[in-house]
Design a protein around this nucleic acid. Structure first.
Lengths: 104, 104
DNA sequence: GCCATTAGAATCACATTGTGATTCTAATTG
DNA sequence: CAATTAGAATCACAATGTGATTCTAATGGC
């Protein structure tokens, strides 16, 4: 099942955002916290893939009440998704124990 | 530059093994600690890629003094590799702060 | 000495993930 | 109604990860 790094970031971003999780917001969150760009291609294709694997659920929400506001694609992490993310996190942590860069 | 999850595991395994880091040993380390299989294909193609990116250095060592022992492909993580791994680790940790699965 | 056995490396075609550039959609402001 | 804008979708392509299979040479038993 494996879960790439970017997939993990998306799951985590969605979890952090909770009820406010939707495509563009997730993207912003990722860029803000990691400091590196998140391409739109990566965003939506990964959303599709995560949904196909049932790690997230997705549905069209309401439009933002703002100029140009458009319907948002809302995202929620499923139980299965949380398990997968948790397992990714655990693997990284456990594996890094004792290595130089994991201690500063 | 990004660094996939598997690449991170390989760098970390090599770092843990220190002077004893070589192809097959890294594989064993990964399987033992993560509990999941590490295919040979993944192993050697990723070694090649990491070396091309200068994140590790590789050279042929001595044969194991054992039945069937064959020359080993020794591995050392470069300074650049350590930086990349460190940055991957930091990103995961920082990003996971406050999320449910990062606290148990 | 010879050959079966074995540790370890290499290759290759293929599946999965990640990216950039570009286009589409519809609500809002004026 | 036309310009503007938040947000989503698509697509061709690049990078990563995998399984199956083959190659290589040293060693131990005989």
């Amino acid at each position: 099942m494996a879960l790439g790094e970017f997939e993990y970031l998306m799951l985590t971003a969605a979890a952090r955002l909770g009820d406010d999780a939707y495509g563009a917001a997730i993207r912003q969150e990722i860029e803000q916290v990691t400091g590196r760009a998140c391409s739109l291609g990566a965003l939506y294709t990964t959303l599709d893939r995560l949904e196909k694997k049932a790690l997230i659920k997705t549905w069209m929400g309401e439009a933002t009440p703002q100029r140009g506001g458009r319907a948002k694609r809302m995202v929620r992490v499923t139980a299965k998704g949380a398990r997968a993310a948790s397992s990714f996190y655990d693997t990284v942590i456990r594996f890094s124990r004792g290595v130089a860069w994991a201690s500063k």
